[in-house]
């Protein structure tokens, strides 16, 4: 009953989750950026496949945006930024990586448990997609929470956003304008965060966000 198209869509969705886990595992910034590019690439592939099986040509545009902006432009810009900032290239984690991975697995289980009963009547492709997209979003949030370095928080945010795009394309009939505007908002968020990073760096000589809190008088 499962056709080949379903299997491929499923494989790409699973691949996205897998790359999210890869992202959690990285302890070097450059490697992390490479994985982010890979994440966006898998997303672009998956969206293109959705465009193919849904007969929705506008999704090809979304796929192209994902490929152009997220897989190439943003990782490249981040890489330049890390280089120019000269920050140390290690990712500083709050919780150990093993624990984070375990938490990520629990989150995947949770999102499957939440989504599969809710979407019992939905189209099986969309159903699996949405469940896996939720796990990508949750892992992105987990990454933002468990990293100290502002650059890796940005990466977490971008992967979270990938999950949202993925969920949106899985559902039929999502207007193109929504996807484009989401893509642009991400770009703008990226620019703002980039400028912000340079500003923090200028003031505090670090991009560890704990410095911000010390400045504010809080406890890290």
């Amino acid at each position: 009953m499962h056709s080949l198209s379903f299997d491929i869509a499923h494989m790409l969705a699973g691949g996205l989750v897998l790359v999210s886990f890869l992202m959690l595992y990285q302890d070097r910034l450059y490697a992390l950026l490479n994985v982010l590019a890979l994440h966006a690439l898998v997303l672009a592939l998956s969206v293109a496949w959705q465009a193919h099986i849904q007969d929705a040509p506008h999704l090809y545009i979304t796929a192209a945006i994902a490929l152009g902006f997220k897989a190439i432009l943003i990782p490249w810009a981040l890489r330049k930024m890390v280089f120019r900032l000269g920050i140390h290239r290690e990712v500083e984690t709050v919780v150990s990586i093993g624990l984070t991975m375990l938490a990520g697995m629990a989150l995947v289980a949770l999102s499957l448990q939440v989504m599969l009963p809710v979407t019992a009547q939905a189209d099986p492709v969309a159903r699996e997609d949405i469940a896996l997209a939720l796990s990508v979003v949750l892992i992105g949030l987990l990454m933002m929470v468990t990293r100290r370095n502002a650059v890796s928080q940005v990466v977490g945010f971008l992967s979270l956003e990938n999950g949202i795009i993925f969920a949106a394309t899985g559902a039929r009939g999502m207007p193109l304008v929504v996807e484009i505007s989401v893509a642009f908002s991400v770009l703008i968020a990226f620019i703002v965060v980039g400028i912000f990073l340079f500003r923090i760096r200028e003031r505090f000589d670090t991009v560890d966000d704990a410095a911000l809190d010390q400045f504010r008088g809080g406890r890290s």
Binding site: V94, M144, V145, G218
Partner: peptide, 8 residues
């Protein structure tokens, strides 16, 4: 008075 990360 929490850190950004704790709010997140």
């Amino acid at each position: 008075f929490l850190t950004i990360r704790r709010y997140l």
